[in-house]
Structures are given as C-alpha cells and as structure tokens.
Amino acid sequence: MQLHSNKSRHIAIVSDHLAGGGAERFSAMLSLFLEKNNQSVTHILVLDEIEYAYSGAVVNLGKIKSHNAGFWNRIKRFLVLYKTFKANKFDCIIDTRVRSKSWQEWFITKMIFNTPYFVVVHSYNTELYFTQNNFLAKRIFTHATKIIGVSKAITNKIEQRYKYPSKYISIAIDLSVIDALKDEALDIHFSYILAVGSMHTDVKQYDVLLKMYSQSSLMAQNIHLILLGEGKLMSKYIKLASDLDIENYVHFLGRKSNPYHYFKNALFTVLTSKFEGFPTVLLESLACNTPVVAFNCMSGPDEIISNRENGLIIEPKNQEAFIDALNTFYANKDLYLHCKNNARASVLQYNIEEIGNKWLQLLHEHGL
C-alpha cells in the first residue's frame, strides 16, 4: 500500500502506540506539526491503541496481532511492515519505540528500514532502548543517522556509555491546546495538590507520595491530594491510603482526557518518580501557571525546574526534605506566588512550534 503524497518529505514515525504516555503524545503532536508544515507523515504502530489527536496515515500492526502473537502471526506482521517500507519511499524514519528483542531489532534495521532513521530515547532508563548484546548493538545503532535524547542527561548518557552519535531535542507541549482546555469548568470544591501518571508500575512511587503527604501539614490545612492515572497498582495505593487513615483526603480519579483544568486549579503539582525522561507533567503544570515540587530524579526535573523560581526541587529519596517542601509551599505565600508568577514563562521554549522547528532543522542538516 503506497501512502506517499505530494508534500515535501514523507516521514515514517514508528511508535509503540498513540495512547497513554508522554512519548506517545509527542509522536502524535509531532505529526500534527509536520503535516501543518507541508510534510507527509505515516504512523507505524506496534499496538492497536490510539487516543491522542494525530495527523497522517496509519499502518496499525496491532490490528493484525493475534491474542497469543505466535510465530506465524509475527511473520505476518513483519511482512506487512516490509511491504509498507518497500512500497513507500520514506525520506526518513523517526523511531520512538522501546526495544527488548535484540535479533528482532537487528532484522528490522537491516532488512526493513531502508532510509535514514533517527532513534528517540524517552527515558533515562536507557536499557529499555539499547540491547545489552554489544555485538548486535553495534550493528543496530551505529548506522542510525542520529540518536535523539529528550533530555540533556539522556543525551550525555548515550554519548558516554554507548558512544553513539546523539543530539538533544526535548519533547514538546502544545500551548494552544492547553489554553483551549485549561479553563473548562471543574466540579471540585476543595483545595488540592496534584499528581499525574501511570499506576501500571511503581516508577511514580505513589506509595512514597502517600506516606509523605500523610506526614505533612497539608491535611490540617484542608489541602487534599488528587491522583490522575490508572493501572494495576491502583488498588494497592487505595488500600495504603486507607491504612494511613487519609482516604478522606486522597482522591483517585483515573485517567482524564483533559488533565489541564486539573493542573490549572491545583495549588501545585508533585512528582516523586524513581526516574523519568523529560517529564511532560511538569511542563504541562507550569504551562497552566501552576508551580511544581519534584524529586530531582534522572532525568529532566533539574532541566525544567529552577529551584525557588518556578518550583522546588528535592534531592532524590530525601523524604524529609520533600515533606518540608510540601509544607513550605503552602506556608510561604511569597515564595509560592513568586514561583507561580514565573511558571508559564519558564516553559515557553518547549512549545511545539519551537521543538518542531528543531526537527525540521535536523532533517535539513542531514540533507533530507
């Protein structure tokens, strides 16, 4: 199936899916920017999950993935992928997937990818992207046109540990979308702080957050905690809130298609992750004029937060300091308002117009 148009470039964006997380949201957002700027985009998806608004054609390998995804079904998907790349003269490939199967990745990059490709690394946990098989790794990644780290720390890690050609381009936010949605009415009649993220794994450390919140003075000031997100660990966290006797102040509201009015109306947003890539929730909160409190995990928070200017940044694992920061941000009104007044301006550089143009410049630099 040939999908090419008469636009200036035909770009394949390869993603796990277009739902759920910041990496997937960025793939969708980038496609909207590229199509608006006369580029033709084809999304190639591993899983049949589409939630975010996007632009371009879609080759959805997830639709032909059987329940058990056995050998012959995998061969069928490889054939569809092979025929897609053979039929379409893509000018370049932007590959945002995580990678866990070394030989599969070798096959894809050698037998299917037939044009310059860029690998995007969205997490400081780079083991999700780079195979531990050094023999195969050299044959997979040394031929990538460039490996893109979405934070400076990720980019430095790629260069120092793996010795691959890399470049820093952060993920983006779309201020026009945020501004259109953040003023929607919100039926909440109490003051609250906010945490946003997946509960499928313990990376966000919501158990730590609940314990720190229970030891803070926020409840005594009638400040609640709202958590947006879903996953298999939610029931565990709900039980923990009950065990800590804070269930009347903690609200598990699930995933929301519009988180922006929750950001706007929060006193501040908190992030307690073990690791990140470049945490979108911090950018989105600040874009809504809401300051942030975050552990300085690897990576991203210290590239986004200027301490005591747009938020508070805390040494990783230092729960006592984090509790103190929660209390301080409520009690010190001058500090809080100073950070709140600086919030929006601190993230204007991450608007999709700015980041999208960096991608266009990258393609131009490589003669594409």
Rank of each mutant, 00 (worst) to 15 (best):
N332S: 13
F275V: 01
V58T: 13
L326P: 02
N248F: 03
E127Y: 08
A57V: 06
F268I: 01
L225S: 02
Y192D: 07
F263V: 01
P279C: 07
G300C: 02
S217R: 13
E127C: 08
K101Y: 06
F26A: 01
A185S: 09
N125C: 05
Y262G: 08
E159P: 04
I154C: 04
L3Q: 06
M1N: 11
N6Y: 11
E35S: 06
K76V: 07
Q132I: 12
Y164C: 04
R139W: 03
L240C: 11
L228G: 10
I171G: 11
I223Y: 04
L136G: 02
I314L: 14
V80C: 14
E24K: 11
L3C: 00
V41P: 03
H4A: 15
L233T: 00
I44S: 06
K256P: 03
L363P: 01
D243P: 05
N222C: 07
K317L: 13
Y192P: 03
A144R: 09
I93A: 06
A266G: 13
E184H: 14
L47W: 10
K146S: 10
F26G: 00
N307H: 15
S273T: 00
L240V: 01
K167Q: 13
N357S: 13
R255M: 12
K138A: 12
K167M: 07
S285T: 02
V14P: 01
V59S: 12
W359H: 05
T42V: 11
T201N: 11
A321H: 04
S166H: 12
M111H: 14
F90Q: 05
H4Q: 14
L186H: 10
I169P: 00
E159S: 13
F275N: 15
Y168K: 05
M199V: 01
S170H: 02
F295A: 02
L362F: 11
R74Q: 11
K236P: 02
V41F: 05
I11K: 02
F107H: 05
N357P: 00
Y262F: 15
I313D: 01
Q160F: 04
S299N: 07
V281L: 04
S346N: 13
I178N: 06
D302V: 07
I171M: 08
I226T: 12
N332R: 12
R255C: 11
I13V: 15
S5Y: 08
N222Q: 15
V59R: 03
D16I: 12
H4W: 11
K211N: 11
A321V: 05
K274Q: 14
T269N: 13
C339K: 03
Y336H: 09
S346Q: 07
I44E: 02
K83T: 08
F90E: 07
F263M: 04
E315H: 14
L136D: 00
G231Q: 04
L210P: 00
G356D: 02
L45D: 01
D179V: 05
T201S: 13
A28Y: 06
A241D: 03
A321G: 02
K101E: 07
S257T: 15
I140A: 01
K110V: 00
T145D: 05
Y168I: 03
I11G: 00
R97E: 08
V347I: 15
A28S: 14
K163S: 14
S66K: 14
D202G: 10
T84R: 01
M234I: 09
V208K: 10
E24F: 10
W103R: 10
Y164F: 15
A294F: 09
T145Y: 04
V347D: 02
N114E: 07
Y206N: 05
N38K: 11
I147Q: 00
T269G: 03
Y54K: 12
